[in-house]
Amino acid sequence: MGTVFTVAGIAHFRKPEKFANITPGFIPFKTFIAYFTGVLELVFGILLLAGKIRNWQLSGMQKFLWAVFPANIYMYTHREKLGLSHLPKWALLARLPLQNLMSRMLEDLKR
């Protein structure tokens, strides 16, 4: 999971406009949010890879996963508007349970 967070964090800096675009319309400062979430994902990834993680950090990661969940819903419901028509709708729908799965994996690390 550390690799997933790290790669996702790097992607935020390589293509910030993609992450800004999937931020739902009611959220301001989309580019800032893209970079900020990228920093968080990098930090989370490094902590997980280093194995130097505390329960409160794992809880923070879980909260983060749920905070970014609306972006996944937005991608699914606005696929054409976001230029994601090349992705099958089922694939975007299949991404939605991943947040819950990752949150459960983090919960297991707390034990």
Rank of each mutant, 00 (worst) to 15 (best):
G2T: 11
T6Q: 13
V7L: 15
V7N: 07
A8G: 13
G9H: 11
I10K: 08
A11S: 14
H12N: 09
P16Q: 11
E17T: 12
E17L: 13
A20F: 03
A20N: 09
P24Y: 08
P24V: 04
I27R: 09
I27N: 08
P28L: 02
F29Y: 15
F29P: 11
T31E: 14
I33R: 12
A34D: 09
F36T: 10
T37G: 08
T37C: 08
G38K: 10
G38E: 09
V39D: 02
V39W: 09
E41M: 13
L42I: 13
F44S: 03
I46A: 13
L48G: 01
L49E: 04
R54Q: 13
Q57K: 06
L58C: 03
L58N: 02
S59W: 14
Q62N: 03
K63E: 01
L65N: 01
L65E: 02
W66G: 01
A67S: 14
F69H: 06
P70Y: 11
N72M: 03
I73G: 03
Y76W: 05
E80W: 09
E80M: 07
E80H: 13
L82V: 06
L82A: 07
G83A: 11
G83V: 10
S85T: 13
S85P: 04
S85M: 09
H86S: 14
K89W: 11
W90D: 02
W90A: 12
A91I: 00
L92A: 06
R95S: 00
R95F: 00
P97L: 02
L98G: 01
Q99A: 12
Q99S: 10
N100A: 09
N100E: 06
L101I: 15
M102K: 00
S103R: 07
L106P: 03
K110N: 05
